[in-house]
Amino acid sequence: MSIQHFRVALIPFFAAFCLPVFAHPETLVKVKDAEDQLGARVGYIELDLNSGKILESFRPEERFPMMSTFKVLLCGAVLSRVDAGQEQLGRRIHYSQNDLVEYSPVTEKHLTDGMTVRELCSAAITMSDNTAANLLLTTIGGPKELTAFLHNMGDHVTRLDRWEPELNEAIPNDERDTTMPAAMATTLRKLLTGELLTLASRQQLIDWMEADKVAGPLLRSALPAGWFIADKSGAGERGSRGIIAALGPDGKPSRIVVIYTTGSQATMDERNRQIAEIGASLIKHW
């Protein structure tokens, strides 16, 4: 067993022997301040990774656009098919120029040779490549099948209805392509620590998230040296922004954090800054 596999296998073990965790309302004060600064709703939840206990939450059962955070769930569904012998990570998928959609920095470079399922998941999570996500959605049967996968996990809230990039439209009061912070946090925890996926697939999923290259201005910008984070960000229309993450000190994750916002007129930089400040408060009061 590799060191990384050992780390993920012992996530519940280490967490069980940690000192009790206590909620700190100071972080919620910052979440509410972010709402004021952005002029928009902000949803927040913080779960203990081992027990699933909610440590703090704000608007945990209000719907927010998922945006690209759905790509972690998508690759979880792909990995479940791999575990069941219905898919192979090494299978190569070929596609054409007509398949390319807006923001496809990886797939646009491989029109000639195609990409493997493993490479597509890596591109979808680490670079948020939209064509990679659409190609992977095709392998599982489309958005409705991802929703069905989530329902089978016990998540009857999260739903995907459309493809990239239309799913980022974020129309107010439109339930399409949305989740709730509580539902997303619980589902992410199941994917990373539950028995739904094999140990190898859980490790692969967290490795992809740990290698995320496009979430630097968010929670990662607030992390002290030595902290662990595996995350996936999302951005959408109407001032929408979000991030889902597993993080913790001492090089291992111990909490799940989900943050979503929508309806702001603020710039992307300002949305990023507010999420980073929430992260800084979380870490300060850990």
Results as ranks from 00 to 15, higher is better:
3 I>G: 06
3 I>C: 11
3 I>T: 11
4 Q>C: 10
6 F>Y: 10
9 A>P: 15
9 A>T: 15
10 L>V: 12
13 F>N: 03
13 F>D: 01
14 F>R: 01
20 P>T: 06
24 H>N: 15
27 T>V: 14
28 L>R: 08
29 V>G: 15
33 D>I: 14
34 A>Y: 06
35 E>F: 02
36 D>H: 11
38 L>M: 11
39 G>M: 10
43 G>T: 01
47 L>D: 01
47 L>A: 09
49 L>N: 04
49 L>P: 05
51 S>N: 10
54 I>K: 07
54 I>H: 12
55 L>H: 08
58 F>L: 09
59 R>V: 01
59 R>K: 09
63 R>I: 09
66 M>G: 06
71 K>E: 00
72 V>F: 03
75 C>G: 09
79 L>W: 01
80 S>V: 11
82 V>M: 06
83 D>M: 03
84 A>Q: 14
88 Q>S: 13
88 Q>R: 12
90 G>N: 13
92 R>Q: 09
92 R>W: 09
92 R>P: 08
94 H>E: 11
96 S>L: 11
99 D>P: 04
100 L>T: 07
110 H>V: 05
111 L>Y: 09
113 D>S: 13
113 D>C: 09
114 G>N: 05
114 G>H: 05
118 R>N: 15
122 S>D: 15
123 A>L: 03
125 I>W: 00
126 T>Y: 04
127 M>A: 08
130 N>I: 01
138 T>D: 12
140 I>G: 04
142 G>D: 05
145 E>M: 12
146 L>H: 02
147 T>Y: 04
147 T>S: 10
149 F>A: 08
149 F>C: 06
150 L>M: 11
156 H>S: 11
166 E>V: 12
169 E>Y: 12
170 A>V: 12
171 I>E: 15
173 N>G: 14
179 T>C: 05
181 P>V: 07
183 A>Y: 09
184 M>I: 14
184 M>N: 01
186 T>E: 15
187 T>H: 05
191 L>T: 06
196 L>G: 12
198 T>Y: 07
202 R>A: 10
204 Q>Y: 09
208 W>A: 03
208 W>M: 08
212 D>F: 02
213 K>N: 11
214 V>S: 07
215 A>D: 02
215 A>G: 09
216 G>P: 05
218 L>H: 03
221 S>D: 09
222 A>P: 09
226 G>A: 09
228 F>M: 10
229 I>M: 08
230 A>W: 03
235 A>C: 04
238 R>S: 11
240 S>W: 01
242 G>I: 00
244 I>P: 00
245 A>D: 00
245 A>H: 00
246 A>W: 06
248 G>H: 04
253 P>E: 06
253 P>V: 09
254 S>K: 14
254 S>W: 09
261 T>M: 15
264 S>G: 10
264 S>M: 05
265 Q>W: 10
266 A>S: 13
266 A>L: 15
267 T>D: 14
268 M>L: 10
268 M>F: 11
279 G>C: 09
280 A>E: 15
281 S>W: 07
283 I>K: 05
283 I>C: 10
284 K>W: 10
285 H>N: 14
